[in-house]
Amino acid sequence: MAKKLNKVFIDVEVDPSVAGDVALAAKLEEVCPVNIFKGTESGVEIVEENLDECVLCKLCLEAAPAGTVHVRKLYDGTELS
């Protein structure tokens, strides 16, 4: 079987300042329709294999404090805002 690539089109990053916030992590897991965030006991984890499924809906940006979640479009170098 051929290789599987992740993070070809989209990268998502959560600011270290809030990445450990368990409540925010749970919220992000709930709002993202394609399960890119996973809430754990130590905060939020990014699910690598789902990154390219991002539908650019901005729900994560709206759920988190301004400027703490970054959704980058790797194909044109811009960031979702």
Binding site: A2, V8, V55
Partner: peptide, 18 residues
Amino acid sequence: TRVDIVARGVIKACLELD
């Protein structure tokens, strides 16, 4: 159906098959 989602899918298929 979304154009960008299909575009990602078919390009990924090419890349994964080298």
